[in-house]
Computed example of a mutant assay.
Amino acid sequence: MSTTAGGHGPTTTATDSPTPIAPTAGARRPRTTAQREAARPSWSADPYSEALRTGRGPLFLSRADGWLLPLEVERWCGAADAVDLDVLRRCEGAVIDVGCGPGRLVAELAARGRTALGVDVSEAAVAHTVRLGGQALRSSVFEPLPGEGRWGTALLVDGNLGIGGDPRTLLDRLTRLLCPGGLLIAETVPLDVDERLSVRIVRATDAWGATGTPFPWARLGTPALLRYARPLGWRTVAQWSAGGRSFVALRSRSTSSSAEPPKRTAVISSQRPRNTSDDRPVPNR
């Protein structure tokens, strides 16, 4: 691994599924309706939900021309590995995992006594995270979330820089989720890539006959991420590679005029008690 300079209860059932956050008066909205809606329908539906329930693929993002990007379902549904643990050691304060999937990182943080919240549009992903002992919320990152402006670290791993298909809008949104000077740890494509895609989630056997709803996605290498991040006030803290995966740690502006008070309209599923002290932005149910 090479590193640049820098700092680092009861199980819920289907009837207990978390619900989306209701927008509140005065809440900041995404720039377009498409940003808010893009991820929710497709990632909430089969075959993705089925794969998370079984813990098995193969599963792919498919483009109309037959291009396929494998999704690492088995790794996502397994325990945090050595590469993941290195990422978690770099986290500061309370952690929000955007696009948490089946929740291995949130569960690992919870097991270590850290405050962490997973956010995902997939009901199956949220349910899996809760079964592992983590806190999780079914929502889009572009909707109001608990603890806005107070999170110490945001995670965008496993390709989640692609959420919404607009990296600039996603990075801008994260500046409002993090506390001033907060940390973003993002996993990038280990190539110099900057792509916008319209994709569907498919099994290998469905690749040419996919009927799911297409949604926008993006793929970014580290150079592209930095090009989007710097004009928004992000500062590079570290870059590293491990296990064939690439990561960047960025720090947000040290001052912010856009941080909002925590939202308390969300329903969060968890097996653990919640706290609302200044360094624990996850609200009580």
Rank of each mutant, 00 (worst) to 15 (best):
Y228D: 02
R235Q: 14
W240N: 09
R227A: 13
T211I: 10
A238K: 12
G221S: 05
T205M: 03
T169L: 14
V248S: 02
R168T: 03
P223V: 09
S258Q: 15
C179L: 12
S246A: 10
C179I: 13
R219H: 13
S198G: 10
G212Y: 15
G165M: 11
R176K: 07
A242W: 03
G182T: 12
A210M: 08
L161Y: 03
A224C: 07
L177P: 07
G244L: 12
P190S: 01
T169D: 15
E187M: 00
R235N: 11
T255P: 06
L161I: 02
R253A: 15
N160V: 02
V193G: 03
A224V: 01
S257A: 14
G165P: 10
D172F: 12
I185P: 01
A210G: 07
A186C: 04
S258R: 15
D194C: 06
T255K: 14
A229C: 02
A207V: 07
L225S: 01
L183I: 13
S198I: 08
W240P: 00
D194K: 11
R251H: 14
P214E: 11
G209M: 14
D166M: 00
A238M: 10
R245S: 09
L183F: 06
T188W: 10
G209K: 13
R230S: 11
V157C: 06
T211Y: 02
D166W: 01
G243I: 08
R251E: 12
S241H: 07
T169P: 04
L191G: 02
G165R: 04
A207G: 11
F247C: 04
W217R: 06
L156W: 06
A210Q: 03
S252D: 12
V237S: 09
V193S: 05
S254W: 15
E187N: 01
L174H: 05
T169E: 14
R227Y: 08
T255S: 14
A218D: 11
V202G: 00
L174E: 02
G209D: 12
Q239Y: 14
V199D: 00
V193K: 06
L155K: 04
R251L: 05
S241W: 06
P223M: 06
L174V: 03
E195A: 04
V237K: 09
T175E: 07
R196H: 09
A238Q: 12
L170Y: 11
